[in-house]
Amino acid sequence: MGIRSTMSTFNSHHEEAEGNARIEPDPFALGLGGQFRVQVNNRVNTEWFFDYLPSSNNQVRRNDYHIGWSVMYYLRENPNPVFRPYVLAGHCFDFTYRQEILNSANNANRWSSAVQAGLGTHFKLNDRLDISFLTQYMLHLGTHIETIYTDEGVKFDKIAGGSLEGHLLTTVSLNYKISDLW
């Protein structure tokens, strides 16, 4: 069981401008979350997680909530080394809420699903405690919300269909092993 902090960089859009309307990349987010892990065997572990990722610029606040799971495969057979690297992949449900700071009635939200994959490592602190570092790319599939900045204010556009949006997530987590189930 553990607590985690995730840094998210959205990279689905570069800055674009058309007339007086422009689209800017979403700002960096610093998140808070938690997870529990159930290890299946010596090489395979599972991680069940929740993350809250707020980010803001001067005009818009964006809150993302992730709930999902991943399967981790350990690259080393040794069950108790100091460094234990792993590859990971999984699924996630994502809720995004965007709101104009000056006018909270101007907002938009959507649910979507996502897949994620990445690389990580545990660093053993003692027999029960570890700190883990993970970098993964999360790809969302579903309705996408685009923030359009104009001279008149901010507009949110929902783009339905199979729009792909992704972000790079870097997670630091502190974990404590509660019990040996099998």
Binding site: P27, F28, S55, S56, N58, R61
Partner: peptide, 8 residues
């Protein structure tokens, strides 16, 4: 350390 809630 926390992010400013109304700025990047």
């Amino acid at each position: 350390n926390n992010r400013n809630p109304e700025a990047n």
